[in-house]
């Protein structure tokens, strides 16, 4: 988290992350190219480059898309999530090499502009066998391009988190386009079933991970809190919440995090303003609620990021009766100071 924009706020973790991406990419490319050269001596450089980059990009895409649900399932994956955009931008650079060389190879030096050629050479849009699969890859490339150039927090703040997140959710459309690009393209040429098997395993793994993570989220949201009085809902016992940690409750479709810190309970909206991270899974550090995804911070009593930051989340009333925690789901305006509920010594024990 920084108060001013840097191209990349390098730290040790980021450097390790990027070096690992680089090392894995080099390892894969070297394996693919060397084996192709040995076992396919009639290879051409362009084709090997196109194939090596395309297969690597598809692998990185699967790894990138799996990080989200893996982190929802096990928080130990958070280090992969924090710099996920580096993985995405790396993938885009690799796809750009694939796309550029493909357009150069298949569409340049013809009687029309290469981009006109891309959309006018094969126009069998109504046929699965003849479908112009390259157009699908081109549209996926455009989505990845938009995601890569807006990956910096500068764009997140200027586009607004909602627009930014919506734009970046198009990665799932891009993934679908990539799968169809492969299935309607090279898989119709190659005779070895390995390609289709790998593609199917990848797709099913991603779908399964998303379903597992999604089901867990839904189960959390579906907990019904029956006891209600004066607008308050009985949500848990105070001992259920660890010090400087929170529990998340979904009331009236609103996710609220109740934090225990400094002898008090505070309730704030669960959704981080940065990238919709789960504040309820964060921790109070230096007196601030710290988002587990990217470390954005908020003061528990008013939901405001400490100056000079300007992010704000809604706050809620919370009260204690005995050891019972009662939460009022009516949100106060973002950044509204609330007194919190004092935990007496007896309750805390």
């Amino acid at each position: 988290m920084g108060a001013s924009y840097l191209a990349v706020g390098w730290n040790r973790q980021k450097k390790i992350y990027d070096w690992l991406i680089f090392a894995f990419c080099v390892l894969y490319l070297a394996t693919f190219v060397v084996l192709t050269a040995i076992f396919n001596p009639d290879y051409t450089f362009e084709t090997v480059l196109i194939r090596a980059t395309s297969t690597l990009a598809v692998i990185i895409l699967h790894v990138t898309l799996s990080i989200g649900p893996l982190t929802r399932i096990n928080k130990k994956f958070l280090p992969l999530l924090y710099n996920r955009r580096h993985l995405g931008v790396s993938m885009f650079c690799i796809i750009l090499v694939h796309g550029s060389f493909s357009i150069l190879q298949f569409h340049s030096l013809g009687n029309v502009n290469p981009f006109v050629s891309l959309f006018t050479s094969n126009t069998h849009f109504g046929s699965l066998a003849d479908f112009p699969f390259q157009a699908l890859g081109f549209f996926a490339l455009i989505i990845f391009f938009l995601m890569a150039i807006t990956s910096h927090d500068f764009w997140l703040h200027n586009l607004s988190p909602k627009v930014w997140k919506t734009l970046h959710m198009f990665v799932y459309l891009a993934y679908f386009l990539v799968v169809m690009h492969v299935m309607l393209g090279v898989i119709q040429y190659e005779t070895n079933p390995v390609f289709i098997i790998i593609m199917l395993i990848g797709a099913f793994t991603l779908i399964a991970l998303h379903l597992i993570a999604g089901t867990r989220e839904v189960n959390k949201d579906d907990v019904i809190y029956k006891l209600k009085q004066d607008g308050y809902v009985l949500v848990c016992d105070v001992k259920d919440i660890e010090e400087d940690r929170a529990k998340m409750f979904c009331l009236d479709t609103e996710r609220i995090a109740v934090y225990k810190t400094g002898g008090k309970l505070f309730a704030v909206n669960n959704v981080c303003k940065h990238q919709n991270g789960p504040l309820g899974e964060g921790k109070v550090i230096d007196g601030c609620i710290t988002c587990p995804w990217h470390g954005y911070q908020y003061l528990p009593q008013n939901g405001q990021s400490p100056p000079p930051f300007k992010e704000k989340v809604s706050t809620y009333d919370v009260k204690l009766e005995g050891t019972h925690v009662w939460l009022n789901p009516k949100a106060y305006a973002e950044g509204t100071e609330r007194p919190g509920a004092v935990i007496s010594v007896v309750n805390a024990e």
């Binding site: 894995f24 894969y28 394996t31 396919n40 009639d42 297969t55 790894v63 390995v194």
Partner: peptide, 22 residues
């Protein structure tokens, strides 16, 4: 992940159709 990447590289490289002799 490391052996997965290597195995995928080997599988994909060796599963390609033979290049033409042109």
């Amino acid at each position: 992940l490391l052996p997965v990447i290597i195995v995928l590289g080997v599988l994909l490289a060796l599963s390609q159709k033979k290049f033409g002799t042109g």
